[in-house]
């Protein structure tokens, strides 16, 4: 076992997960590839969504991959930062909206 949980070199080994349960891995990677094709959303828009999600779930592999991917797709630094702010807003909002529960509880237990 390595001394750290995350190693940048592991990103390139993602495909190796097919060594165990290959049919499941094959299905996943086929689906993954199709998801990121041009469709109702462009490849660049999907890349920016992926970058935002990567920050929301705090996946270092995904941040690494989708920062480079965004640059390759021609996204500007401003667009990539706005995508991260969207993730931050949703995460922050998700905490704050629970404050309504706290406020209701305050009302419930107060005279």
């Amino acid at each position: 076992m390595k001394k750290t949980y995350y190693d940048p070199a592991d990103l390139a080994k993602f495909g190796d997960i097919a060594e165990y349960q290959k049919p499941l891995a094959d299905s996943f990677f086929k689906y993954y590839g199709e998801v990121f094709q041009d469709g109702a959303l462009s490849k660049r828009e999907k890349s920016l969504i992926a970058l935002a999600v990567a920050h929301a779930i705090q996946c270092p592999y995904c941040i690494d991959a989708y920062t480079t991917d965004g640059l390759e797709k021609g996204a500007s630094e401003e667009q990539m930062m706005e995508a991260v702010h969207v993730a931050a807003a949703i995460r922050g909002g998700a905490s704050l909206v629970h404050a309504t529960q706290m406020m209701s509880k305050v009302d419930e237990v107060s005279m």
Binding site: S42, K43, R44, T68, L71, E72, K73, G74
Partner: peptide
């Protein structure tokens, strides 16, 4: 501008 590939020319 760095160590990555260019995107689609038309886009």
């Amino acid at each position: 501008m760095g160590a990555f590939l260019p995107g689609d020319q038309a886009t």
